[in-house]
Design a binder for these strands. Structure first.
Lengths: 167, 167
DNA sequence: TCATAGATGTTATAACACTACATGTTTCGA
DNA sequence: TCGAAACATGTAGTGTTATAACATCTATGA
């Protein structure tokens, strides 16, 4: 899924390098996720599902307290700890990622491999990319220094096309 | 400078790929930094210098409040805002970097180019690397998506050799 | 159906970062 | 060398993000 549909740029000649995420709807993703969780024997509870739903529907990464505000239950906003617990679950199972550079969370769509995100420093927009070059380079650097690679989102910051225009 | 001297690993055949930071002492770095600041016409005040000193002497990235505790002045620990202001200065001039994934700060030694850090998820140890491959790959991915590259530290997480042994 | 593991509710607090405004200090030109 | 302006620091308070501790509820399977 593309988190910022209106701002996606695919430069000619470069599309082949980057495997675009499938442009499935939120509904299909949720259905797939439910199936995945059943297969794994873990529970996609209503709370977890709702947090994932909000993340999938958001144009940008959301803060935990943004999520709490968005998720009103019985007239009260969701307690922060509840949001964090749901996020822990989603992250643990590769369904979401924490973007440390912005203290924000985003739904993941690739599902496998080491994800990378392009993040705009100005507007906070984030685009998930699945780029073998990046994954391979990172892996090589880690092992060259004796590090064990771990599946963690790579955050690459820059200025998005839109914010360059606004200037 | 190497922040974790005892844990540096240089695998045979890989050293050429990565330009190691010069193993200068803290004193020399500080002298160089003073000269650099004079040349730029900016002021490396005692507070800023002391914050940099502590960062240079630390084995790991330090949190802002760790720095505040370490920097006692007139019997009282330094106010957090004072630390943050010093850090702002150091970061603005490329003398330090913020590691968002750990809410911590680290002295920089490369001075130029886009720095990258290998960070251990377990112990928090961070190693600065200057690797043209990584910088080039990141730059290419950004421009391919229409993003403007900005000089920001790249954080690559994994598990350091030592923590693999402990296990 | 009952024990158990997992999930959630509730309250409080820890940890990190910054705003606002007052005061001090350096620098440089008149 | 005086004074204005720019820069740096002091002080108090607050905003923001994340988690601890413990009670209660619920799904699940023997």
């Amino acid at each position: 899924m593309v988190h910022t549909p209106s701002l996606q740029h695919h430069l000619p000649g470069e599309t082949a390098r980057f495997q675009a995420s499938p442009a499935s709807g939120t509904g299909k993703i949720l259905a797939d996720t439910e199936a995945l969780c059943r297969a794994k024997g873990v529970r996609l509870t209503p709370i977890r599902r709702r947090v994932l739903e909000v993340l999938l529907g958001a144009a940008k990464p959301l803060g935990a307290y943004d999520l709490a505000d968005a998720l009103v239950s019985q007239g009260r906003r969701m307690a922060p700890i509840t949001v964090y617990r749901a996020l822990d679950f989603l992250i643990e199972h590769g369904l979401a990622h924490r973007l440390a550079s912005r203290n924000a969370y985003i739904a993941s769509t690739s599902g496998h491999g080491v994800p990378a995100f392009l993040i705009c420093e100005d507007c906070g927009e984030a685009t998930e990319i699945t780029c073998t070059d990046v994954a391979e380079t990172v892996r090589r650097v880690l092992t060259a220094q004796g590090y064990q690679p771990l599946a963690r989102a790579l955050e690459i910051t820059g200025q998005c096309p839109h914010c360059q225009d606004v200037h």
